[in-house]
Design a protein around this nucleic acid. Structure first.
Lengths: 181, 181
DNA sequence: GCTTGCTATGCAACTCGGTGCATAGCAAGA
DNA sequence: TCTTGCTATGCACCGAGTTGCATAGCAAGC
């Protein structure tokens, strides 16, 4: 129940259309809150109906028209209230951890397959880390010269980087453990 | 779509009733896969219908009867197939990250409230880390003398510990950043 | 001219998980 | 005796999110 709020934050950082939001959710915001375009359009409609947003029709040449959304004062109020509410305990769904414990109940072939899968997963996250580091370099070349909003974006990005580094170390630990069996 | 598999793993580690599973999901397994008892009973019924489990009625004195479930060969086959399937990309829902970026659009009072909330969140995870460390000490006092299943459980636990440590460090970073604004 | 692909928006059906509620046996204490 | 609390199981509803599908404009290449 917080896609609304993720959208509010994203639109406050920069107004945009549903399509643009969907692309942001594939990139920066999507790193910590995923959403498909169908979901985004549905929620945008509700937010618009509730007066959290205003829409502006923008005609484009060479492309279809789009509707750009901006957060209203009412939307800001909603966000402010949510920011003060306690963080909801997140629903943990760590599939890989279940699989690793499940590896105790399979044969050598199964374990070998899991080992390969963990390797693939590791490679994915290695490239994700590289993406984060590139993004940090590109968007925040001088971390001492940032405004308030950028400092907050940067600390969130640092969190992503720290997470990926921790994950890679742990995956190495997992790979060693599986190999030793 | 993997609560089934988490239950298979848990029942292979030790057969048990729906109630017992629910308690495990509050404790060990629940660290990486949450589920309520309602959900567990519903899925157990489906798994039983599909022949992945067999149920045994156990009369108890001083307590209501219970139904203890054991994984069938068919269930093992299902698990083995799932173990070899690629890990599904997890749906990220990191509410705190959204709130932190949202802090750019609130006033001093709002930021102070968020600061307090981050502090509370940090304390929660500090005590969770302590729980993990206690569990590690209790269940794996000598990590050099573990069987295959225990080694896998241990590496998952190490992952939890590494995650919590990383998170605490990052939350300190967040607290510093918020205080400096 | 036809296909492919990107921009742009949206509906409908389904599934999964969460919330609320209900039942029932028995023990322990006020 | 009555209430509280733990063990034990389960139904019904709702909402959020996923999947599949559909439409439409325009550009670029074959």
């Amino acid at each position: 129940m917080a896609l609304e709020h993720a959208i509010l934050v994203s639109l406050l950082e920069r107004p945009g259309s549903g399509y643009e939001l969907a692309r942001r959710f594939e990139r920066s915001i999507g790193r910590f809150w995923t959403a498909t375009h169908q979901q985004i359009y549905r929620v945008l409609k509700r937010m618009d109906d509730d007066g959290w947003l205003t829409a502006e029709e923008i005609g484009q040449d060479g492309r279809p028209d789009k509707r750009s959304f901006t957060v209203t004062p009412a939307g800001r109020t909603v966000l402010a209230a949510w920011l003060q509410a306690p963080v909801q305990p997140e629903a943990v769904r760590h599939e890989l951890a279940v699989k690793i414990r499940g590896a105790a109940f399979t044969d050598d072939t199964g374990r070998a397959a899991l080992l390969a899968e963990v390797g693939r997963y590791r490679a994915e996250h290695e490239s994700l880390l590289a993406t984060y580091l590139n993004g940090a370099e590109r968007d925040f070349p001088d971390p001492t010269k940032l405004d308030a909003g950028q400092r907050l974006q940067h600390v969130v990005l640092r969190g992503g980087i720290a997470y990926e580094r921790m994950l890679l170390d742990w995956l190495d630990d997992v790979l060693d453990t599986l190999r030793d069996m």
